[in-house]
């Protein structure tokens, strides 16, 4: 009986040790997610006026670059490698500010290449994204190994797009949770600016109007971008991009969008709910406005990737 009791005590001791080690690992993993850099935490240096909850609510209005690149491809825009940010530029980005912006830029380029079936050529972009994400302590959300394997074959485009997009979503959610919203905002801004840069640099296209309207519609996103950037305008690095964004906003303000909301109707099709949208919108934008937006986008984008 005494031997059995000792055995029980020993087993219990093992369990207690196992539990302690397990909890230590949990704590340790939480610690490892904390920002370790000094230029990405804004709570001590700036006074954000928009809460993290509101940032999370607004930042989702920046569209996935899949939408614009798909439209460009469907509209007959020819793929132009020289429009993308050069992979060798990555070594220039030494601050977290530049790293975050260009993580968004390279992410958009990766998506764009995959939409155009250039999956195999995108391997260097994958590497840059992994390096930038690791430097920003969010590399755990970018599944480089799987993406690298899938990118060896042009037929894996859908999987590559899904893993890339969901990885960026996870990064953004995590950054906001960890009170590093400013980094999440910079990544989104880089993503959005690169999308605009690709969309405003189209040449011989049969259906330009659809692309122009999509660019004009970015007026709604522009308003939110300005709101997000204003949050950090007191920080040195952010002052310039906020000022530049305001200049771009002035051009977008010339776009007019009219709405005609009508209550939708619903119907059930094979057990699924389908909404019949009875509303319409008209976006008014002309060549002159497009040209001015294009010029300002180029100025901002050149600063980001330099």
């Amino acid at each position: 009986m005494e031997t059995t009791f000792k055995f029980f005590l020993r087993i219990t001791l093992y369990v207690v040790v196992l539990l302690s080690v397990s909890f230590s690992f949990q704590r340790c993993s939480q610690c490892s997610h904390k920002p370790t850099t000094d230029d990405d935490a804004i709570d001590t240096t700036g006074k954000p006026t928009v809460s993290d909850g509101t940032v999370a609510e607004i930042i989702s209005s920046v569209q996935n670059p899949v939408e614009m690149s798909s439209l460009l491809q469907k509209s007959g825009v020819i793929f132009a490698q020289d429009l993308l940010n050069k992979t060798e530029n990555n070594s220039k980005y030494t601050t977290n500010f530049k790293k975050a912006l260009n993580l968004g830029v390279y992410g958009t380029d990766l998506v764009h290449m995959n939409i155009y079936g250039k999956t195999v050529s995108s391997l260097l972009y994958l590497k840059n994204i992994q390096d930038l994400a690791n430097d920003l302590k969010i590399g755990q959300f970018f599944d480089y190994e799987t993406l690298n394997r899938l990118s060896q074959n042009d037929k894996n485009t859908d999987s590559v797009l899904y893993i890339t997009s969901s990885g960026f979503d996870k990064m953004s959610n995590f950054l906001i949770q960890e009170k590093r919203s400013n980094i999440a905002v910079l990544i989104s801004y880089g993503t959005w600016m690169e999308t605009l840069y690709l969309a405003t640099n189209i040449e011989k296209v049969s259906n330009k109007q659809a692309v122009y309207e999509r660019i004009g519609f970015q007026k709604k996103v522009m308003d939110n971008i300005v709101l997000l950037l204003k949050n950090y305008e007191n920080l040195a690095d952010y002052k310039e991009i906020y000022a530049d964004a305001l200049v771009l906003k002035k051009e977008f303000d010339k776009v007019t969008i009219s709405y005609n909301y009508q209550p939708p109707t619903t119907k059930e099709v094979n057990g699924s709910l389908v909404i019949v949208d009875n509303s319409t919108s008209i976006i008014n934008i002309n060549e002159e406005i497009i040209e001015n937006i294009k010029k300002q986008v180029k100025i901002i984008r050149d600063k980001i990737v330099s």
């Binding site: 209005s61 309207e213 709604k220 969008i257 005609n260 709910l273 389908v274 949208d277 009875n278």
Partner: peptide, 14 residues
């Protein structure tokens, strides 16, 4: 409850 809804959008907007 429906697990998903399909929305063919006719009005660009927020």
């Amino acid at each position: 409850h429906y697990p998903s809804i399909e929305f063919p959008c006719k009005m660009s907007g927020s």
